[in-house]
């Protein structure tokens, strides 16, 4: 039972760390200075949430593992994030659409998590809900600007949808661990959030003059540690110093 809860918390933590790391890759390289500030700001929110969730998972597990043990000492087969968040940044259109897809899912998720039986999850939900509102606003504004901007930006935005939409299905799938956490009242169910997610996204797509894709091949596997090839490279870079100095304190 507690194993399942730990796994479910790690799934959620990994989603946040991996996406936060992806956003941090933009820092100093964004299309404009304002985005050099906005992307790290969202990244910091996500990494902050991951830290709370890892720490909580470690407490429940009770084996003395802390946030850095989970983040730096697990390899890609042990990471449990969904595939959407590990997708490489691509261009700015893909980064913003990926953000919108994720944030529009997390908003109803955190709302439901306000009723969590776990005080840490409940507290995090209240904080994250405020942050995610900004993430949605910011990314939706960009999806609209780019979708309804120039011919080039519209083509790139349409391509981003083709690139990423297939990865959104996995957001709504609950692993066995997540189902156990739901049954225990700790984490919300996922399947029921699809209506809210589509209701948030469809008006943005309409304003961005983007077609809502009808036919996509859904991709999943992250919750079983079956990832794409990009995650291993991301983790290799992220973990290199920590792993080169076992036991060192930083």
């Amino acid at each position: 039972m507690s194993d399942a809860i730990v796994t479910a918390l790690l799934e959620l933590a990994d989603d946040h760390l991996v996406l936060g790391h992806r956003l941090s890759e933009w820092c100093g390289h964004a299309p404009m200075l304002e985005e050099d500030l906005a992307l790290p700001s969202m990244g910091l929110d996500l990494i902050g949430a991951a830290r709370v969730l890892y720490t909580r998972a470690g407490e429940i597990e009770g084996k003395g593992r802390g946030e850095d043990d989970f983040a730096y000492l697990r390899d890609e087969r042990a990471y449990r994030n969904c595939l959407l968040v590990e997708r490489p940044n691509g261009d700015f259109a893909q980064t913003m659409l990926r953000q919108l897809y994720f944030a529009a899912f997390m908003e109803p998720y955190w709302k439901a998590a306000l009723g969590s039986s776990d005080a840490v999850v409940q507290g995090l939900a209240a904080k994250a809900l405020k942050e995610v509102a900004y993430h949605i606003r910011h990314s939706a504004e960009w999806v609209i600007r780019l979708g309804d901007g120039t011919a080039e930006s519209a083509a790139r935005m349409a391509e981003a949808v083709v690139e990423l939409h297939g990865y959104t299905d996995e957001l709504f799938l609950s692993s066995e661990a997540a189902q156990a956490a739901e049954a225990a009242g700790i984490l919300p169910g996922r399947a029921a959030l699809r209506t809210a997610w589509e209701a948030a996204l469809k008006p943005v797509f309409a304003e961005a003059q983007l077609d809502w894709p009808e036919k996509v091949w859904p991709q999943s596997g992250g919750r079983k540690g079956e990832h794409g090839e990009a995650l291993g490279h991301m983790l290799a870079e992220m973990q290199v110093i920590a792993r080169a100095h076992p036991g060192a304190v930083w």
Partner: peptide, 11 residues
């Protein structure tokens, strides 16, 4: 940033 050795340092 992408290689910071702990989450606290990374943030």
């Amino acid at each position: 940033i992408t290689r910071a050795p702990s989450l606290r340092r990374k943030a």
